[in-house]
Design a binder for these strands. Sequence first.
DNA 1: GTCATATTTCAATGATTAATGAAATATGAA
DNA 2: TTCATATTTCATTAATCATTGAAATATGAC
Lengths: 119, 119
Amino acid sequence: MTLDDAAIALTALGHSSRLMVFKTLVQAGPGGLAAGRIASLTGIAPSLLSFHLKELAHAGLAIARPLGRYMIYAADFAAMNRLLAYLGENCCNGNPCLAIAEPACAQAGLPDPRQADPE
Amino acid sequence: MTLDDAAIALTALGHSSRLMVFKTLVQAGPGGLAAGRIASLTGIAPSLLSFHLKELAHAGLAIARPLGRYMIYAADFAAMNRLLAYLGENCCNGNPCLAIAEPACAQAGLPDPRQADPE
DNA sequence: GTCATATTTCAATGATTAATGAAATATGAA
DNA sequence: TTCATATTTCATTAATCATTGAAATATGAC
């Protein structure tokens, strides 16, 4: 993932409506949700939601597949992982200083990586 | 961290120049860099850089401190960790499915958390 | 004090983005 | 075929953002 790829994905998530939509898709899991269901869950008008979903899809964070007259959108978990990996490597000095890494390591008796000094 | 806080931070990082600036600050470590040094490292014009640095600071991702006639900017690693934690919890279903979590866990003999099915 | 350096502010411009509602497209049901 | 549902497209408007260069501010050096 290049810096520009990451910036495009971050821009897509950097809007409260789109972040809410993406969060909704994540909660829905890989099966995804129909556009209308996303609209009713988030309260976003259909045409505006279509615009935001297209932004997310264009950024590679959501995948669309038609199902009859419905359009099913799902979060692209792999893409999100790549983005988080990029941020961890390039924007946290490559150190395991991420809070998110803590729970998985705590159960293994490892020290909390959040204490690592990033200098 | 609220969804709106996260969206503000993501917007700040969702611009290639600002992401490059932030990456530069991260590489510099907690000691930070003078604005002029950031300008020469990134090739961004001083007045435009000032604008972008203000955006990063306003989003809580960078901290500024005056040092004589210089202004030192440093990445706020704690804020970045909070953002990554938010994304991990809310945008990866709370599962340890993050690629970034893998290295720390591999050394403990844990299975690769990236294989976890987020459904 | 005067000068050079470092940074920010400001105004102006152009570009991009968000939001709204109406119209178009497509699918399934009756 | 006709109708209702689901979604997208389009045109329009408003709003926000990025960029530039000049001017202002502040600090340290001489």
